[in-house]
């Protein structure tokens, strides 16, 4: 399960954050700044995974923006079989990396060449888009047209004064 998705720029400014596991404010701020610090300190050649405070963090950089996905780090395999264990992280790091790319491509098609400013100024729109793709930390849809069709439809209908939403 995905615990959080962040979009943070190279200056460490968060451009979008979505948490699927409750964390209070101080924790979030600390987590975000710490993770971006770690991401920035890594070179392109290093792998895209790091472990931080029990989270496995998968990140990918697009131009100036880091897309960061945190999942609960794998627990011990044996613990998974132990009775009463709550190990339920089956996330595939490479799969999530692919998912990040899929997300970025979807956003790119939505805005036509997405850039950091788009995300910034259309915060709520990006959230709507993200909600079509991820719910409660699980992947809902990865097909770009399936994600964008309802969003476009809603936007068009909302524009009309006599649309489906009256």
């Amino acid at each position: 399960m995905i615990s959080f998705i962040l979009m943070v720029n190279k200056q460490g400014q968060t451009r979008l954050s979505s948490y699927y596991e409750w964390m209070d404010m101080q924790e979030r701020v600390a987590l975000e700044s710490e993770i971006i610090r770690k991401c920035l300190s890594r070179s392109e050649l290093q792998c895209s995974f790091l472990e931080y405070r029990g989270f496995k963090v998968i990140y990918r950089r697009y131009a100036s923006l880091f897309f960061i996905v945190g999942t609960k780090a794998d627990l011990d395999v044996r613990a998974l079989d132990a009775p009463g264990s709550t190990a339920e992280n089956y996330e595939n790091e490479l799969g999530l990396l692919e998912f990040i790319h899929s997300l970025v491509e979807t956003m790119d098609r939505w805005a036509g060449s997405i850039c950091e400013l788009d995300i910034m100024y259309q915060l709520e729109q990006v959230h709507f888009l993200l909600d079509e793709m991820v719910m409660n930390g699980y992947i809902v849809e990865t097909n770009k047209s399936n994600v964008l069709r309802p969003i476009d439809l809603i936007d068009r209908e909302s524009k009309k004064t006599e649309g489906m939403f009256r």
Partner: peptide, 17 residues
């Protein structure tokens, strides 16, 4: 904060990839 970072926020994210 450095607003003149080499990669401007205006630059497209996906372009290079």
């Amino acid at each position: 904060m450095d607003k003149n970072a080499p990669l401007k926020p205006e630059s497209s994210l996906l372009q290079p990839q």
